[in-house]
């Protein structure tokens, strides 16, 4: 007993002094602890394993810096790995994109649709995005594309009523609901809504009525092949500029399969995945306010697809939408 305690102490001592060469065996235990740490933060096992492997590759045969322990060296490398994975490779400036699309000679409405599994927060976060666009003086058409779940249309009607009132008070953009009740095919409702917003139905057409068309869709299980494949048709008919998937921070390992299975439905008529082969344009990670530091879903979904996180949902009110601050997320994950 004494022997192990002493050797552990000297181990620590040597460790703290730095200059230790990192081998597979000296990394094994601290990496296992790091992996457990990530799992506790709700990072899916697949992502945790991949991150730990990349840290191992990064550190193998390196020397620890002076006065730096192995644990600290691993932490720093993991922070780098997490930052790398969460940082989007191209920046998404939604407002600029909307402005570009809705102005000039070939102006047309900018179309965004929101997808995801049941109850994750699609309709609520769609309303938050509408609020954000309204504050930026855009005219928004909200489309009740969930023609299945009870109350889905009324839910949006209430949001539109609230948002109209807010817009009027703040003297910003305007918002309307486009709905065809229940039971209709979502793809055709969406298509109709886009042409209504463009106002190009009559001969010659008139002024575009709305800048942004925000399409809500029904929640669906990613293992329901029938409902999932209807997304393909939806994507092709509505032809959105952006498809955002809502992933819920509360969800565990399933987030990996959710992200992959939704992404793979969005192929064009030639069978190519949208958005340069990744399928969708971004994730909205909802309910971040309900998980404390356990924000691992962010990592799991990005890791699974390479699709960036564009918004975080941090509450149930219209203002509770944030852009992703990578430093904030990494700090929470490493805490």
């Amino acid at each position: 007993l004494l022997g192990t305690a002493t050797s552990r102490l000297t181990g620590l001592f040597r460790n703290a002094l730095g200059g230790a060469t990192l081998t597979k065996s000296s990394l094994q235990q601290p990496l296992a602890a790091m992996r457990n740490h990530l799992l506790e933060k709700n990072v899916a096992r697949e992502a945790a394993d991949r991150l730990c492997a990349s840290v191992e590759t990064d550190l193998l045969n390196q020397k620890t810096a002076s006065f730096t322990s192995i644990d600290k060296t691993i932490r720093e490398s993991m922070e780098k790995a997490l930052t790398r994975i969460l940082t989007p490779t191209s920046s998404l400036d939604l407002l600029r994109d909307v402005t570009t699309t809705t102005t000039g000679p070939s102006a047309r409405p900018y179309v965004i649709s929101i997808v995801g599994v049941n109850g994750v927060g699609k309709s609520t976060n769609l309303s938050k995005i509408a609020y954000f666009l309204l504050q930026n003086h855009f005219r928004v058409l909200i489309v009740a594309g969930d023609t299945f779940r009870s109350g889905a249309v009324e839910q949006l009607r209430v949001h539109v009523r609230n948002l109209s009132e807010l817009a009027r008070r703040e003297a910003v953009g305007r918002v309307e609901l486009f709905e065809k009740g229940y039971g209709k095919d979502a793809a055709s409702v969406a298509k109709e809504a886009v042409s209504y917003a463009s106002n190009n139905t009559g001969k010659g057409g008139g002024e575009m009525l709305y800048d942004v068309v925000l399409i809500d869709t029904a929640g669906r299980r990613h293992n329901d092949t029938r409902l999932m494949s209807s997304l393909t048709k939806f994507g092709q008919l509505a032809n959105p500029d952006k498809i955002f998937m809502v992933g819920e921070a509360l969800v565990g390992s399933d987030s990996v399969a959710q992200a992959r299975n939704f992404a793979k439905e969005f192929v064009d008529t030639k069978g190519n995945l949208r958005n340069n082969g990744v399928g969708m344009d971004g994730f909205i990670i909802s309910k971040c306010d309900t998980v404390g530091d356990m924000v691992g879903t962010l990592v799991s979904m990005v890791h699974a697809t390479g699709i960036p996180v564009v918004f975080l949902g941090v509450g149930q009110h219209y203002g509770d939408l944030r852009g992703l601050n990578v430093g904030w997320a990494v700090e929470r994950l490493m805490r």
Binding site: R149, S150, G151, A152, V153, Q155, V158, Q316
Partner: peptide
């Protein structure tokens, strides 16, 4: 009484 459309949702289910 908080979630938008909550009563409509319950009502439609109950009626069905």
């Amino acid at each position: 009484t908080f979630r938008a459309g909550a009563f409509d949702q319950l009502k439609q289910n109950a009626i069905k």
